[in-house]
Design a protein around this nucleic acid. Structure first.
Length: 426
DNA sequence: AGGTATTCACATGAAACTATTCTCTGAGTTAGG
DNA sequence: TAACTCAGAGAATAGTTTCATGTGAATACCTGT
């Protein structure tokens, strides 16, 4: 017999039972039933997800017009100037560029202009974060597949050439988070991309680089720099009032009426404005606050929910960062956690000693101090630890490491790592 | 006292190595005609 | 003879080791008063 059928019978019996007796005890079935029938405080949560692309981008009309002006020649099958877009996270760069690309592609299609736009995010791990993978990804966007490894890089370039050069066309290539790419694999790849045009007979490529780093172009090879940034546009940060408007517009449609209490939007905007006007963060914050309110069965989203959302986002980020790291990373972090209760500040050498002991205990091979040093630097980047390089004079130079996280989170992290590494405390 | 030289304990950088995953190629093998 | 199998060469990549060089200030060591 089939389990589901049994359950079905059980379920209907339970409901019948409840109806007859009018009893209202809590069980999981009731919970799910309530969950379904209860009005959600959300109307349409997708509006608050980071994947949502609004049809109108507020406070960016002029910048979008600028971008459009620069890229417009492509509609006449002329190569437009290359463009470099700067702006901090959450200033609408990506959104605006995607928007322009989409509309330019639509117009091109309507007028049968041979134009293609490609958008690639260079930060995506295992997709486009190396030279080979970037080109492979471009080929994939053009509708052909390339093996993930095994081919020489030149070969992939050749496939790419022949693929785009088979007819006269303009390719608008938007590379998001381009600074990540160059910091990881060097700027040779950009040089190759800009040089492609000279070798193409029919097609032409125009590059649109998007960078979070405002001084990205400064430490670029001069040749690359001149050909990559013929035009530059800077996206300024939003101020608190602008973020308020953006939030209000989204929340009006994302939540039911009167769900969001007065002052929540303002505070949310203030939080985000403090972080250099990151609109995406503000929207995330509002969404998580809403989710918390819903989980607590509250009818309204309050300022308290917002505060809680702020810390939840922070802890979730750290927990996610830690759990996705390899085991050796976790063990190093564990060493820090073990050492932490005794000393508030720690040094690389101390951590390495503990780490070596732990390695023996759990049968890991011991990595060199050089490697541990890099790992500590990465933890610092992730915001899990605070590291500062100090000199203790005669007693050498080292990282001074402290933990800025709250106690509850530390305990949780420790448990998580113990579980994942199967460390048993005596 | 004031100046400089030394020294520690790592940091930081570059290159090389290792293991894994994957493709391509061509020799050897098999099966069918 | 065509189709198939399979080992070996060659690539890309992540993670690491090895080797080399850099570094900031507390201390040790001078020097002249």
């Amino acid at each position: 017999m089939n389990i589901w059928q049994n359950n079905q019978i059980y379920l209907s019996k339970a409901i019948l039972h409840k109806k007859l007796r009018g009893e209202c005890y809590m069980n999981v079935n009731n919970f799910f039933q309530n969950y379904l029938t209860k009005d959600s405080i959300f109307l349409d949560k997708s509006l608050l997800l980071s994947s949502y692309a609004p049809e109108e981008i507020m406070y960016r009309e002029n910048l979008i017009q600028d971008v459009a002006n620069i890229l417009a020649p492509s509609l006449r099958v002329e190569r437009p100037s290359s463009l470099l877009v700067y702006g901090k996270t959450g200033t609408g760069k990506t959104l605006s560029i995607k928007y322009v690309l989409k509309s330019i592609e639509r117009i091109a299609a309507d007028n049968s202009v041979p134009l293609k736009t490609i958008y690639v995010n260079c930060k995506l791990k295992r997709i486009a974060d190396t030279e080979y993978r970037l080109i492979a990804q471009l080929i994939k966007e053009l509708g052909k597949d390339v093996p993930p490894t095994g081919l020489p890089t030149d070969e992939v370039y050749n496939i790419f050439y022949t693929l785009i050069d088979n007819k006269k066309q303009i390719i608008l290539l938007a590379l998001d988070e381009i600074d990540q790419l160059t910091s990881k694999v060097g700027d040779l790849i950009l040089y190759n991309l800009t040089r492609i045009n000279a070798e193409l007979k029919n097609a032409q490529i125009a590059l649109v680089g998007i960078s979070n780093n405002l001084i990205f172009a400064e430490n670029l090879d001069p040749r690359v720099r001149s050909s990559l940034s013929e035009e530059e546009i800077i996206f300024p940060s939003y101020n608190a009032l602008q973020i308020q408007d953006i939030l209000r517009k989204r929340s009006d449609r994302a939540f039911r009426e009167n769900v969001v209490e007065v002052g929540v939007i303002e505070k949310c905007a203030a939080y985000a404005a403090r972080e250099h006007g990151d609109a995406r963060r503000a929207i995330d914050l509002l969404r998580v606050a809403g989710e918390l309110a819903e989980r607590y069965g509250s009818e309204h989203v309050t300022v308290n929910h917002l505060d809680e959302a702020e810390s939840k986002i922070e802890t979730d980020k750290i927990i996610h960062a830690v759990t996705t790291q390899p085991k050796q990373f976790q063990l190093v972090l564990y060493s820090i956690l073990v050492l932490h209760p005794q000393n508030t500040v720690m040094f690389t050498g101390e951590i390495y000693d503990i780490y070596q002991k732990l390695c023996k205990q759990v049968n890991f091979n011991v990595l060199t101090q050089r490697r541990i040093s890099d790992m500590l630097a990465e933890f610092d980047m992730l915001g899990i630890i605070n590291a500062k390089i100090i000199s203790k004079g005669r007693y050498g130079r080292t990282r001074e490491i402290s933990l800025g996280l709250d106690g509850k989170l530390l305990v949780k992290l420790k448990e998580l790592i113990e579980k994942s590494l199967q460390i048993h405390n005596e």
